[in-house]
Design a protein around this nucleic acid. Structure first.
Lengths: 127, 127
DNA sequence: CAAGTAACTTGCAAAAAGCAAGTAATATGA
DNA sequence: TCATATTACTTGCTTTTTGCAAGTTACTTG
C-alpha cells in the first residue's frame, strides 16, 4: 500500500532529487570547486570572486562535512585552526563539475575555468 | 584596471558558477529530468513524487524558457494550452544529470532511476 | 599591551520558498 | 442551460533561507 523505499529519502528515491537535496543551491558546488582547485581554508574559499557570505560558507562546510563529502582536520594548534579536504565521496563529484564545464563551454561563451590555487608562501624574511 | 570579462557575468566568469546561476536550486534540474523522461505538460511535472509547488513550477518553467533550455509550444487551441520541450541546449544537460546518477549510484544506495514517462491514452470508449 | 589574523557567529532585513485557495477558459453531461 | 470537471496557472500569506555588516574568540606579533 506504500513504497517502503520512499520513507528513506527526503523527497523521492530519484538519484537526481537526492543529489539536489545535498548540493542543490548556488553555493555548495562552488565550495567543492574551490576544494578541487586546491583551496582548503575558510579564508581561501571566502576570497573567491563570487564572494560567498561567511555565514553561508560556514553552513555549507558543515553540511558538506555531515554528508561525508568533506573532512575537517586541524592544521594548527595554538590557535586551533581547521582546514577542509575532499573525501573520496567528494572527489567523485569531479565528473559532475566537469559535465557542467563542458555544457558551459558550449552554451555560455566567455566562461573560463579557474586556474589551480597555490597558497602564497608566508614571507619569512625580515626585510 | 578591471576585468572586462567580469561584468558580463552575474558572479564570476567561472563556468560552474554560471551554470549554478541558471540551475542551482532544488527544483530546476528535476523539471529537466522530467522533460528528459518524456513529460511535457504542467500537470505531468506537478504529479512527480517530489510534489513541486505549482507557483515554483510556473516560475522555473519561465526561467528555463528565458535561458533557452526549454521551448513552450501550444498543443491545443480552445482552450489554449501549452506544452514544454527541451531545446538542444536543454538536451545537452543530459550528461550533467547522468553524472549525478553515477555519483548517486555509488554513494546513495537505494536510489533508483525513474522509468520513462508514457502519457496515458485518453479513454475514448463510452463504456 | 595594542594591533593584527583566521575562523567563525550573531542579528536583522530582504528575498525566496511553500501552502492553500482562487481564477480563466473551455469541455462534458444532466 | 447550468452545474461539474479539466488544465494551467496566479494570488496572498506565512515560513524559511539568504545576504550583509558587525561582533567574537583565541591567539600571535611588534
Amino acid at each position: 500500500m506504500h513504497d517502503p523505499n520512499q520513507d528513506k529519502f527526503e523527497r523521492s528515491c530519484c538519484p537526481v532529487a537526492n543529489v539536489l537535496d545535498l548540493l542543490g543551491d548556488k553555493w555548495t558546488l562552488l565550495v567543492v570547486r574551490d576544494l578541487v582547485l586546491g583551496k582548503s581554508r575558510f579564508g581561501e574559499f571566502s576570497e573567491s570572486p563570487e564572494a560567498i557570505p561567511t555565514n553561508i560558507l560556514a553552513d555549507r562546510l558543515k553540511r558538506l562535512e555531515q554528508s561525508g563529502i568533506v573532512m575537517k582536520a586541524p592544521y594548527c594548534r595554538r590557535p586551533l585552526r581547521y582546514e577542509y579536504e575532499l573525501t573520496e565521496r567528494g572527489r567523485d563529484l569531479i565528473p559532475v563539475l566537469e559535465s557542467m564545464v563542458v555544457w558551459a563551454g558550449k552554451h555560455l561563451p566567455g566562461t573560463q575555468v579557474f586556474a589551480r590555487y597555490v597558497r602564497p608562501v608566508q614571507d619569512g624574511s625580515g626585510g
